[in-house]
């Protein structure tokens, strides 16, 4: 009896359709938006593609982020489009306030990420994506003065991501490893190449996290960096994050950042907050 009404409901319901946002993917599988605009964690691009597009869907995201450390503040506006969970186009506009020195630096980043193979959750292969970020520094005066060789350049990366549905403690775990070829100084905010070294080098970027439940993840990221400029040593970055996905439309990420020395100012630590809307 109950099943007859269920079948009736099915028949009725099928005659109604509505337009909706891309939602073929499972919650949180689009990750969040990294500071360079590509889907990832916060400071590392992952193999995941932004939004919840699957099959033949288009999806997209818009993001506002801010990182505040002792002597600097980075603000990012980002947007991305994802077609068929296969290719992601992204755009980020960064403003870097030199709070204690005075002035600001700007950079635009155009990204493309292509899912080469595999899947974050299903099948035997982890999700493997390749990406390119074209970066243009639009305030090159200061970078030029401290020894940067050019105001625009490409980064290229290969990322592998995999979730483990019932990992340790029966929680869902996610790991990501990224290898990037880059010669960006402080991700490009201080230009590209330097008086110490002027060629692309390979750096490693790692992330690992655990979902306490399916809408709340905590984890850490590590990002190795080149060291091209004589005027100041550049340190690797570390972050510890919390990401909350109340719905597929919104996510909020907070993090503690340890960015090491930046432009000669020591031990830059602080907080990161990022708000993403997905459609």
């Amino acid at each position: 009896m109950r099943y007859r009404s269920l079948s009736a409901a099915l028949l009725l319901g099928c005659s109604m359709t509505i337009a909706h946002a891309a939602d073929g993917g499972l919650l949180a599988t689009g990750g969040v938006t990294s500071i360079e605009g590509s889907a990832g964690g916060g400071i590392v691009p992952w193999a995941v593609l932004g939004s919840y597009a699957e099959d033949d869907e288009w999806g997209g995201t818009v993001t506002l982020s801010q990182a505040s450390v002792d002597d600097f503040r980075l603000s990012v506006m980002g947007a991305s489009l994802n077609y068929r969970n296969r290719v992601e186009f992204s755009l980020a506009r960064q403003t870097f306030d030199l709070s204690s020195i005075g002035g600001e630096l700007n950079q635009n980043i155009f990204g493309v990420k292509y899912r080469v193979a595999g899947d974050l959750i299903y099948g035997n292969l982890p999700q493997i994506s390749a990406g390119i970020q074209y970066k243009e520094n639009t305030r090159f005066g200061l970078p030029d003065a401290v020894g940067a060789q050019r105001d625009s350049d490409f980064d290229a990366y290969l990322a592998v991501s995999r979730a483990w549905l019932a990992g340790p403690f029966d929680r869902t775990w996610l790991v990501n490893a990224t290898v990037r070829a880059t010669r960006a100084n402080q991700i490009g905010l201080l230009g590209f190449g330097g008086d110490k070294s002027d060629s692309h080098e390979l750096v490693a970027e790692l992330a690992a996290g655990v979902f306490l439940h399916r809408s709340l993840a905590v984890g850490m990221e590590y990002r190795q960096k080149p060291n091209n400029l004589n005027f100041a040593d550049e340190d690797d970055w570390v972050s510890a994050f919390v990401a909350w996905f109340p719905t597929k439309s919104v996510s909020i990420t907070g993090a503690f950042l340890d960015l090491g020395d930046i432009a000669g100012l020591e031990s830059q630590q602080g907080y990161y907050l990022s708000l993403q809307a997905a459609f």
Binding site: Y3, L6, S7, A9, G13, M16
Partner: peptide, 23 residues
């Protein structure tokens, strides 16, 4: 199954299904 019947994205798959048997 009731949630599926409520889900516009997939309920069309089950229109001709014997739901009691599937259950």
């Amino acid at each position: 199954l009731f949630n599926i019947a409520d889900d516009r994205r997939i309920r069309h798959h089950f229109v001709e299904t014997d739901m009691a048997h599937l259950h």
